[in-house]
Amino acid sequence: MDQLNQREQQDFQRIVEGKQMKDFMRLYSNLVERCFNDCVNDFTSASLTSKENTCVLKCSEKFLKHSERVGQRFQEQNALLTQQMRR
C-alpha cells in the first residue's frame, strides 16, 4: 500500500469505495437473515406479530451496535499488529 503512486492511489480509492458499498449490502442481507432466524418462529399467520416486531427492531439495533464496537476494536488491534510487524 505504501508503494502506490498518485494515479494508483486514485484508482484504489475508487475500488475501496465500491467495496465499502458492497460490504454494506452484504451486512444488510446478513442482518436480515440473522434477525429472521432468531426472532421469527411462528408461522400461524402471514404478517408479523407485535412481539416479533419488537424483537426484530431490537435485534437489528443490537447487531449494528455490536458491529460498530467490533469495528472499533478491530481497528485498534490491527494498528497494534502492524506496529508489531514493523518493529
Partner: peptide, 9 residues
C-alpha cells in the same frame, strides 16, 4: 444472547 431483551449492548 439470542433473547433480545433490549436494543442496546
Amino acid at each position: 444472547s439470542k433473547s433480545y431483551n433490549e436494543g442496546d449492548v
